Simulated assay, not measured.
Amino acid sequence: MARKEVALLIHDGVQALDVAGPLDVFAEANGFLPDDQGYDLVLLASDRRLIRASNGMPLAAHLTFGDAARRFDTVLVAGGPALPEAAEDIDMSAWLQRWGVVAGLYGSICTGAFILGHAGILDGRTVTTHWQAAAQLAAMFPAARVEYDRIFARDGALITSAGVTAGIDLALELVAEDHGPAVALACAKRLLVVTQRQGGQSQFSPLLQRRTGDSTPLGKVQDHVMAHIGESFPVERLAEIAGTSTRSIARLFVKELGLTPHDFVENVRLDQARNFLEATDLALKTVAFDCGFAGPEQMRAVFQRRLGLSPQRYRESFRAASRPSSTCSVSSDDGQRHPSHTS
Protein backbone atom coordinates (compact mmCIF):
# COMPACT_ATOMS: atom_id res chain seq x y z
CA MET A 1 0.00 0.00 0.00
CA ALA A 2 1.33 3.42 -0.98
CA ARG A 3 1.52 6.38 1.37
CA LYS A 4 -1.74 8.23 1.99
CA GLU A 5 -2.17 11.98 2.15
CA VAL A 6 -4.55 13.07 4.91
CA ALA A 7 -5.92 16.62 4.76
CA LEU A 8 -7.46 18.09 7.92
CA LEU A 9 -9.43 21.32 7.55
CA ILE A 10 -9.10 23.85 10.38
CA HIS A 11 -10.74 27.20 11.14
CA ASP A 12 -10.97 29.91 13.79
CA GLY A 13 -12.21 28.46 17.09
CA VAL A 14 -11.32 24.89 16.14
CA GLN A 15 -11.16 22.36 18.97
CA ALA A 16 -7.46 21.62 19.43
CA LEU A 17 -8.11 17.99 20.35
CA ASP A 18 -10.06 17.51 17.13
CA VAL A 19 -6.85 18.39 15.32
CA ALA A 20 -4.15 16.87 17.54
CA GLY A 21 -5.96 13.62 18.38
CA PRO A 22 -6.39 12.19 14.87
CA LEU A 23 -3.05 13.59 13.66
CA ASP A 24 -1.22 11.93 16.56
CA VAL A 25 -2.81 8.59 15.68
CA PHE A 26 -1.61 8.82 12.07
CA ALA A 27 1.81 10.06 13.20
CA GLU A 28 2.16 7.15 15.61
CA ALA A 29 1.16 4.74 12.86
CA ASN A 30 4.04 6.06 10.76
CA GLY A 31 6.42 4.75 13.42
CA PHE A 32 5.15 1.20 12.85
CA LEU A 33 5.04 1.30 9.05
CA PRO A 34 7.59 1.27 6.22
CA ASP A 35 8.30 4.75 4.86
CA ASP A 36 6.44 4.01 1.65
CA GLN A 37 3.22 2.98 3.48
CA GLY A 38 2.65 5.73 6.05
CA TYR A 39 0.64 8.94 6.16
CA ASP A 40 1.47 12.48 5.02
CA LEU A 41 -0.46 14.97 7.16
CA VAL A 42 -1.60 18.35 5.84
CA LEU A 43 -3.56 21.13 7.57
CA LEU A 44 -5.76 23.22 5.26
CA ALA A 45 -7.40 26.59 5.91
CA SER A 46 -8.66 29.65 4.06
CA ASP A 47 -5.29 31.38 4.43
CA ARG A 48 -1.93 31.02 6.14
CA ARG A 49 -2.52 33.39 9.04
CA LEU A 50 -2.41 32.03 12.59
CA ILE A 51 -5.69 30.46 13.65
CA ARG A 52 -6.66 30.57 17.31
CA ALA A 53 -8.13 27.32 18.62
CA SER A 54 -10.95 27.40 21.17
CA ASN A 55 -8.40 26.90 23.97
CA GLY A 56 -6.26 29.78 22.70
CA MET A 57 -3.63 27.63 21.00
CA PRO A 58 -2.33 29.17 17.77
CA LEU A 59 -2.32 26.96 14.70
CA ALA A 60 -1.23 27.54 11.13
CA ALA A 61 -2.20 25.66 7.98
CA HIS A 62 0.34 24.05 5.67
CA LEU A 63 -1.75 24.97 2.63
CA THR A 64 -4.59 27.30 1.73
CA PHE A 65 -7.62 26.02 -0.15
CA GLY A 66 -6.22 27.71 -3.26
CA ASP A 67 -2.93 25.82 -2.86
CA ALA A 68 -4.74 22.51 -2.33
CA ALA A 69 -6.73 22.21 -5.55
CA ARG A 70 -6.19 18.48 -5.86
CA ARG A 71 -7.49 15.14 -4.70
CA PHE A 72 -6.43 13.82 -1.27
CA ASP A 73 -6.73 10.26 -0.02
CA THR A 74 -8.55 11.34 3.13
CA VAL A 75 -10.23 14.66 3.98
CA LEU A 76 -11.49 15.42 7.48
CA VAL A 77 -13.04 18.59 8.92
CA ALA A 78 -12.24 19.38 12.56
CA GLY A 79 -14.99 20.64 14.86
CA GLY A 80 -15.24 23.61 17.17
CA PRO A 81 -17.55 24.76 20.01
CA ALA A 82 -19.05 27.62 17.99
CA LEU A 83 -19.81 25.70 14.79
CA PRO A 84 -23.45 24.78 15.58
CA GLU A 85 -24.27 28.50 15.62
CA ALA A 86 -21.76 29.67 13.01
CA ALA A 87 -22.65 30.86 9.52
CA GLU A 88 -21.49 28.90 6.50
CA ASP A 89 -17.86 29.35 5.47
CA ILE A 90 -18.35 29.81 1.73
CA ASP A 91 -14.70 29.12 0.84
CA MET A 92 -14.62 25.92 2.85
CA SER A 93 -17.93 24.72 1.40
CA ALA A 94 -16.70 25.38 -2.13
CA TRP A 95 -13.47 23.46 -1.56
CA LEU A 96 -15.30 20.52 0.02
CA GLN A 97 -17.83 20.38 -2.81
CA ARG A 98 -15.04 20.33 -5.40
CA TRP A 99 -12.25 18.37 -3.72
CA GLY A 100 -13.55 16.91 -0.46
CA VAL A 101 -16.13 14.59 -1.95
CA VAL A 102 -13.68 13.16 -4.50
CA ALA A 103 -11.30 11.97 -1.76
CA GLY A 104 -11.07 8.27 -1.15
CA LEU A 105 -12.54 8.95 2.28
CA TYR A 106 -13.99 12.18 3.65
CA GLY A 107 -15.82 13.27 6.76
CA SER A 108 -15.74 15.18 10.02
CA ILE A 109 -14.70 15.13 13.64
CA CYS A 110 -17.23 16.24 16.23
CA THR A 111 -19.14 19.37 15.17
CA GLY A 112 -17.20 19.52 11.93
CA ALA A 113 -20.36 17.77 10.70
CA PHE A 114 -22.06 21.19 10.63
CA ILE A 115 -19.53 22.35 8.03
CA LEU A 116 -20.31 19.27 5.93
CA GLY A 117 -24.00 20.03 6.35
CA HIS A 118 -23.62 23.58 5.07
CA ALA A 119 -21.76 22.17 2.06
CA GLY A 120 -24.70 19.84 1.30
CA ILE A 121 -22.62 16.73 1.93
CA LEU A 122 -24.84 15.18 4.65
CA ASP A 123 -28.06 14.92 2.64
CA GLY A 124 -29.36 11.36 2.63
CA ARG A 125 -26.37 10.10 4.64
CA THR A 126 -26.04 8.47 8.07
CA VAL A 127 -23.87 10.64 10.31
CA THR A 128 -23.06 11.45 13.92
CA THR A 129 -21.63 14.31 15.96
CA HIS A 130 -21.14 15.32 19.61
CA TRP A 131 -24.15 14.17 21.67
CA GLN A 132 -24.74 17.76 22.81
CA ALA A 133 -25.17 18.98 19.24
CA ALA A 134 -26.84 15.97 17.62
CA ALA A 135 -30.42 17.26 17.91
CA GLN A 136 -29.40 20.62 16.45
CA LEU A 137 -27.60 18.93 13.57
CA ALA A 138 -30.72 16.89 12.81
CA ALA A 139 -32.91 20.00 12.95
CA MET A 140 -30.62 22.09 10.73
CA PHE A 141 -30.06 19.36 8.15
CA PRO A 142 -33.23 17.24 8.14
CA ALA A 143 -32.16 15.32 5.04
CA ALA A 144 -29.36 13.72 7.09
CA ARG A 145 -29.89 10.63 9.25
CA VAL A 146 -28.26 11.61 12.54
CA GLU A 147 -27.24 8.79 14.87
CA TYR A 148 -27.19 10.20 18.41
CA ASP A 149 -25.22 7.42 20.11
CA ARG A 150 -22.48 6.42 17.64
CA ILE A 151 -18.81 6.99 18.47
CA PHE A 152 -18.35 7.18 14.71
CA ALA A 153 -20.58 6.47 11.73
CA ARG A 154 -19.57 5.15 8.32
CA ASP A 155 -21.70 5.67 5.22
CA GLY A 156 -19.76 4.65 2.15
CA ALA A 157 -16.84 7.05 1.73
CA LEU A 158 -18.31 9.39 4.39
CA ILE A 159 -17.17 8.93 7.99
CA THR A 160 -18.15 11.14 10.92
CA SER A 161 -17.26 10.95 14.59
CA ALA A 162 -18.79 11.92 17.90
CA GLY A 163 -17.27 14.58 20.14
CA VAL A 164 -13.67 15.59 20.68
CA THR A 165 -11.68 12.45 21.62
CA ALA A 166 -13.91 10.34 19.35
CA GLY A 167 -11.70 11.67 16.56
CA ILE A 168 -9.03 9.37 17.99
CA ASP A 169 -11.43 6.42 17.70
CA LEU A 170 -12.13 7.38 14.09
CA ALA A 171 -8.44 7.64 13.20
CA LEU A 172 -7.66 4.30 14.87
CA GLU A 173 -10.43 2.72 12.82
CA LEU A 174 -8.93 4.11 9.62
CA VAL A 175 -5.47 2.85 10.56
CA ALA A 176 -6.97 -0.59 11.25
CA GLU A 177 -8.67 -0.57 7.85
CA ASP A 178 -5.47 0.45 6.08
CA HIS A 179 -2.90 -1.63 7.95
CA GLY A 180 -4.72 -4.12 10.17
CA PRO A 181 -5.78 -4.23 13.83
CA ALA A 182 -2.27 -4.99 15.11
CA VAL A 183 -0.94 -1.61 13.94
CA ALA A 184 -4.01 0.18 15.34
CA LEU A 185 -3.51 -1.60 18.67
CA ALA A 186 0.14 -0.58 18.75
CA CYS A 187 -0.87 3.06 18.17
CA ALA A 188 -3.52 2.85 20.89
CA LYS A 189 -1.01 1.47 23.38
CA ARG A 190 1.40 4.28 22.61
CA LEU A 191 -1.36 6.84 23.16
CA LEU A 192 -2.75 5.05 26.23
CA VAL A 193 -6.21 4.67 24.74
CA VAL A 194 -8.36 1.70 23.72
CA THR A 195 -8.68 0.68 20.09
CA GLN A 196 -12.46 0.30 20.41
CA ARG A 197 -14.22 1.76 23.43
CA GLN A 198 -17.24 -0.07 24.74
CA GLY A 199 -20.65 1.52 24.47
CA GLY A 200 -21.83 4.59 22.62
CA GLN A 201 -21.55 8.25 23.53
CA SER A 202 -24.78 8.15 25.60
CA GLN A 203 -22.64 6.93 28.49
CA PHE A 204 -21.08 10.42 28.59
CA SER A 205 -24.26 12.46 28.22
CA PRO A 206 -26.93 13.34 30.80
CA LEU A 207 -30.12 11.47 30.00
CA LEU A 208 -32.63 13.70 31.77
CA GLN A 209 -34.54 16.03 29.52
CA ARG A 210 -35.12 19.75 30.01
CA ARG A 211 -37.28 20.52 33.05
CA THR A 212 -40.68 22.13 32.71
CA GLY A 213 -42.11 24.58 35.23
CA ASP A 214 -42.53 23.10 38.71
CA SER A 215 -46.17 24.23 38.93
CA THR A 216 -47.23 22.58 35.68
CA PRO A 217 -48.75 19.08 35.66
CA LEU A 218 -45.61 17.74 33.97
CA GLY A 219 -43.36 19.61 36.40
CA LYS A 220 -45.16 18.02 39.34
CA VAL A 221 -44.61 14.58 37.81
CA GLN A 222 -40.92 15.25 37.17
CA ASP A 223 -40.33 16.47 40.73
CA HIS A 224 -42.19 13.55 42.29
CA VAL A 225 -40.47 10.89 40.20
CA MET A 226 -37.02 12.34 40.92
CA ALA A 227 -37.74 12.48 44.65
CA HIS A 228 -39.24 8.97 44.85
CA ILE A 229 -37.40 7.06 42.14
CA GLY A 230 -37.45 3.81 44.10
CA GLU A 231 -41.23 3.60 43.72
CA SER A 232 -43.23 2.05 40.89
CA PHE A 233 -44.59 4.50 38.33
CA PRO A 234 -47.15 3.05 35.92
CA VAL A 235 -48.70 5.68 33.68
CA GLU A 236 -51.86 5.66 35.85
CA ARG A 237 -49.78 6.76 38.85
CA LEU A 238 -48.14 9.53 36.81
CA ALA A 239 -51.55 10.76 35.65
CA GLU A 240 -52.77 10.80 39.25
CA ILE A 241 -49.77 12.92 40.34
CA ALA A 242 -50.35 15.32 37.45
CA GLY A 243 -54.11 15.47 37.98
CA THR A 244 -54.78 14.50 34.39
CA SER A 245 -55.99 11.48 32.43
CA THR A 246 -53.54 8.78 31.35
CA ARG A 247 -54.04 9.86 27.74
CA SER A 248 -53.29 13.49 28.59
CA ILE A 249 -50.13 12.73 30.56
CA ALA A 250 -48.75 10.62 27.72
CA ARG A 251 -49.52 13.40 25.23
CA LEU A 252 -47.87 16.00 27.49
CA PHE A 253 -44.66 14.02 27.78
CA VAL A 254 -44.36 13.56 24.03
CA LYS A 255 -45.22 17.20 23.30
CA GLU A 256 -43.04 18.85 25.96
CA LEU A 257 -40.12 16.45 26.28
CA GLY A 258 -40.24 14.36 23.13
CA LEU A 259 -40.40 11.03 24.95
CA THR A 260 -42.94 8.70 26.53
CA PRO A 261 -43.67 8.58 30.28
CA HIS A 262 -41.99 5.15 30.42
CA ASP A 263 -38.85 6.51 28.79
CA PHE A 264 -38.76 9.46 31.18
CA VAL A 265 -38.96 7.21 34.23
CA GLU A 266 -36.31 4.90 32.77
CA ASN A 267 -34.06 7.91 32.11
CA VAL A 268 -34.39 9.04 35.72
CA ARG A 269 -33.66 5.52 37.02
CA LEU A 270 -30.67 5.19 34.73
CA ASP A 271 -29.23 8.60 35.55
CA GLN A 272 -29.64 7.98 39.29
CA ALA A 273 -27.95 4.60 38.94
CA ARG A 274 -25.07 6.24 37.05
CA ASN A 275 -24.69 8.76 39.89
CA PHE A 276 -24.54 5.97 42.45
CA LEU A 277 -22.04 3.95 40.42
CA GLU A 278 -19.80 6.98 39.89
CA ALA A 279 -19.83 8.29 43.46
CA THR A 280 -20.50 5.42 45.88
CA ASP A 281 -19.39 1.88 46.69
CA LEU A 282 -22.96 0.59 47.00
CA ALA A 283 -23.49 -2.98 45.81
CA LEU A 284 -25.13 -3.34 42.41
CA LYS A 285 -28.16 -4.99 44.04
CA THR A 286 -28.60 -2.00 46.34
CA VAL A 287 -28.19 0.47 43.48
CA ALA A 288 -30.82 -1.39 41.45
CA PHE A 289 -33.29 -1.47 44.35
CA ASP A 290 -32.77 2.18 45.33
CA CYS A 291 -33.27 3.29 41.72
CA GLY A 292 -36.52 1.37 41.25
CA PHE A 293 -35.30 -1.46 39.02
CA ALA A 294 -36.81 -4.89 39.61
CA GLY A 295 -33.31 -6.18 40.35
CA PRO A 296 -29.70 -6.10 39.18
CA GLU A 297 -30.50 -8.13 36.08
CA GLN A 298 -33.08 -5.64 34.89
CA MET A 299 -30.67 -2.79 35.61
CA ARG A 300 -27.96 -4.60 33.66
CA ALA A 301 -30.34 -5.11 30.71
CA VAL A 302 -31.22 -1.40 30.64
CA PHE A 303 -27.54 -0.38 30.84
CA GLN A 304 -26.65 -2.70 27.97
CA ARG A 305 -29.57 -1.54 25.83
CA ARG A 306 -29.19 2.17 26.51
CA LEU A 307 -25.44 2.64 27.06
CA GLY A 308 -23.90 -0.43 25.46
CA LEU A 309 -22.06 -1.60 28.59
CA SER A 310 -22.79 -3.23 31.96
CA PRO A 311 -23.23 -1.38 35.28
CA GLN A 312 -19.94 -2.85 36.53
CA ARG A 313 -18.08 -1.72 33.42
CA TYR A 314 -19.65 1.72 33.74
CA ARG A 315 -18.47 1.94 37.36
CA GLU A 316 -14.95 0.90 36.39
CA SER A 317 -14.86 3.55 33.67
CA PHE A 318 -16.39 6.48 35.54
CA ARG A 319 -15.86 5.88 39.25
CA ALA A 320 -14.88 9.18 40.90
CA ALA A 321 -11.51 9.52 42.60
CA SER A 322 -13.30 10.16 45.90
CA ARG A 323 -16.22 7.82 46.61
CA PRO A 324 -18.33 8.86 49.60
CA SER A 325 -20.82 6.30 50.80
CA SER A 326 -23.64 8.82 51.11
CA THR A 327 -26.33 8.85 48.45
CA CYS A 328 -26.36 11.23 45.52
CA SER A 329 -29.29 13.30 44.39
CA VAL A 330 -30.64 12.97 40.88
CA SER A 331 -29.23 15.67 38.64
CA SER A 332 -31.67 18.25 37.35
CA ASP A 333 -31.27 20.40 34.27
CA ASP A 334 -29.40 22.92 36.42
CA GLY A 335 -27.15 20.32 38.02
CA GLN A 336 -26.30 17.83 35.33
CA ARG A 337 -22.72 16.82 34.63
CA HIS A 338 -22.19 18.80 31.43
CA PRO A 339 -18.88 19.08 29.61
CA SER A 340 -17.52 22.60 29.66
CA HIS A 341 -18.41 23.04 26.01
CA THR A 342 -19.21 21.26 22.79
CA SER A 343 -16.74 20.92 20.00
Rank of each mutant, 00 (worst) to 15 (best):
G117Q: 10
L137A: 08
L50E: 15
T111N: 10
A78S: 10
A144N: 12
G66S: 12
G56F: 13
L105A: 12
L96D: 00
M57V: 07
G156D: 03
A134P: 10
I115W: 05
D40I: 10
F72T: 01
P81F: 02
A86F: 08
V127N: 11
P81I: 05
D67S: 10
F72Q: 03
A45I: 02
M57I: 10
R150D: 13
G120D: 03
A87N: 11
Q136G: 15
E147W: 15
V42R: 09
G79P: 00
V42H: 13
D73S: 03
F72R: 02
L83A: 09
G156L: 12
F141W: 15
V101Q: 07
A134M: 11
I121T: 01
R150W: 10
R71H: 12
A113D: 03
W99P: 02
A119T: 02
I151E: 11
A94T: 04
T129M: 12
R145Q: 14
S108V: 08
D67L: 06
A157L: 10
W95Y: 00
G112E: 02
D91S: 12
R145K: 15
S46L: 12
R145P: 03
L76A: 05
D149A: 15
M92A: 13
D123W: 02
V75L: 01
G112M: 03
L137Q: 07
I151H: 09
F114E: 01
A53D: 01
L96G: 01
H62V: 11
R48E: 13
G80V: 01
L44I: 03
L116A: 06
D149F: 13
R125E: 09
A94D: 05
V101I: 06
A60G: 14
A94C: 14
L43P: 13
V75D: 00
T74S: 15
Y148Q: 15
